[in-house]
Each structure stands twice: as C-alpha cells, then as structure tokens.
Write a protein that binds this DNA or RNA. Structure first.
Ligand code: FES
Ligand code: FES
Lengths: 144, 144
DNA sequence: ATGATAAAAGACTCTTATGTCTTAATATAA
DNA sequence: TTATATTAAGACATAAGAGTCTTTTATCAT
C-alpha cells in the first residue's frame, strides 16, 4: 500500500473538514460515523494533526475539531508527512541504505523520477480545491 | 512503503540471479548471505516465484534456484504482481470501494495518472537491462 | 547404499499496524 | 453546581507482516 490506513483516514477527515469549513468545530463522532471508521482510532489520528497545528480541537459540548488554517493552504503532502512521514519519498525503493543520485541502486533511475513527480503532485494539491471539486462535481468523499 | 519487504527481497534476489544468469542454479544461502537477509524468509519468498514459473529450483547438492526465463523477459511488474499483488495499481488510494474513472474519489484524478505511469515504467523495465546496468555501470545490488 | 547438500513445508515467535475500551480532563447548558 | 458532550490519554486486543526454527524430501557425490 502506498499510504497507511491512518494516513488515509486522516486525509479523508481533513477533506470532510474542508468541505464543512463554515463550521468552526465538527465532532469527531460525526466524521467517524459518516466514514464508517473507528471513532477512537480516528481520534488518535486527529490528535497528531492537532499537535501539528493543522487542525484545532475543543473539548465539551459544541466542541470537536476544525481546520486551523485555510483549506487551500493545506496540501495533501502536509497530511501525509505528519502521519506517514517522508520515508516514502526519501528511501531507496529496494531498501538499500543511502539513496542518492551518486549512490544509486538499479531501480534508482526509475524511482527517483516517479517519487519526485508524485511528491510534486501531492505538494501542489490542496484541500481547498479538493473540497471544491467534492461539492461542485459531487465527487464522493466516503463510501459508495 | 510502496513495496513490502517480501517484494523487495524478491526483486533483489531475481536481480542477483539475472546478474549471475550464466549459472544454472545458485543456492539460496548464497543470495541470503550476500544480501544480509534471512535465509528461511527468502526461501519462502522464492517458493512463490518458483510456483509462478518465473524461477526454477533444484534440490540437493548442486541445487539452488535459477531463472526459468530470459532475464530480459521478466519485468519488475511481474515480480511485484506475484509478491504484492496488483492492489496498489487497482485500488483507490483513499481506500474507497470501486475505484474507476466513472466512480472517482477526490484523489482519483492525481492517482489515476501517477499509478498508470508507475505501472508502465515497472512493466517496461526488465531484469535483463537492470542486470546489464549493474555489471556495466557497477551499480550496487546489495548493501553499501 | 550412504552421507552431504539444498529446497519444501510448516510450526512457531516477534514486531508493527490497526482497532477497542476505559478513564480523565474540559467545555457548555440547564 | 450538576449533567452532558466531547477531546485527551493510555491500556489493552487483534491481525498482519516479518523473521526463526525444525522436519521432510529430493539430488548429487562417494
Ligand atoms: S538507491 Fe535505490 S532508489 Fe535510490
Ligand atoms: S476512486 Fe479513489 S483513487 Fe480512484
């Protein structure tokens, strides 16, 4: 798998918040119910994003989580970096130590380009435009 | 991670066999020792490739494993398909059911292109040319 | 034939990712 | 101030991936 489950759930949750960005706080329970994933698991994932300052949280009635920045200023790469780290984009695809242009393995030539392109796309794609597509083009955000 | 450890070890072993394709059989022990990975683990991985007909094996003294096809006719994608399956190239990157152009999620547009390009590159790259690079350009196959 | 070599098969362990549950802390509302 | 809603924190459980060990089977060399 390219992304861990935690990362995928995190992305989907931030997408949900981006689509609902007129609401200051959305209960995690609402997100987990709609997406059909574990509430407690999602809570732990979103705590990471809260600590990273990407989203904010509020306890108690009327509390929940919400974006801490404009959706358009959060990239897919930002979320991936927080939840899965950057090893996917830094390490040798064959697991050899010290991946670098002057220390390549046989797959380096292919992988170097692929991972750079992927990283660029993920950095350029922001949650503002993704949310816009979801609302305008009725792209699905969860399930069917 | 993009590829599982099993898959990475499998690729590296097939690379080793491709570089040594003048030898009919190479003991798995030799490969696992050189690559610094578990002999028994590698044995299980190579059994999968043997059952798939990609490599052949022979028990007993002078036995081992060897390519069952020309190195140039085995693609990286072939090995990945056997060991990790094709889910990476078929499934929705957000884990939603039924990834298809007429049933997209918000990341489909990016991911559709990226995964198609990656798949194409992996299909086009064969172990013959990889092995050639390793011998001619002294590209590392394992460790430092 | 016998012994040595090496893959095949499968039981077993260890680690990590994933998921569940319980309790505490904090904010709102009555 | 008390009840309710909601995140925070962390213990615990389950599953999958990764790795180890032992036994069996097949081949070669003597
Ligand atoms: S050294 Fe292997 S991908 Fe760079
Ligand atoms: S539906 Fe999500 S990547 Fe295709």
């Amino acid at each position: 798998m390219l992304l861990s489950k935690s990362c995928v759930y995190g992305i989907r949750a931030v997408l949900y918040l981006s689509v609902n960005d007129e609401r200051e706080y959305v209960p995690i329970k609402e997100i987990s119910d709609k997406m059909g994933i574990s509430f407690h698991f999602l809570t732990k994932i979103l705590q990471v994003l809260t600590n990273a300052g990407m989203i904010k949280s509020m306890k108690g009635a009327k509390g929940g989580v919400g974006l801490n920045q404009k959706a358009s200023s959060i990239s897919l790469y930002d979320v991936i970096r927080e939840l899965d780290g950057e090893t996917l984009f830094e390490e040798c695809v064959l697991g050899l130590p010290g991946c670098a242009d002057d220390n390549p393995c046989s797959m380096h030539k292919i992988w170097r380009v692929t991972k750079a392109e992927l990283k660029k796309e993920l950095e350029e794609e922001n949650f503002g435009s993704l949310a816009k597509q979801i609302t305008e083009d009725e792209i699905r955000l969860y399930d069917i």
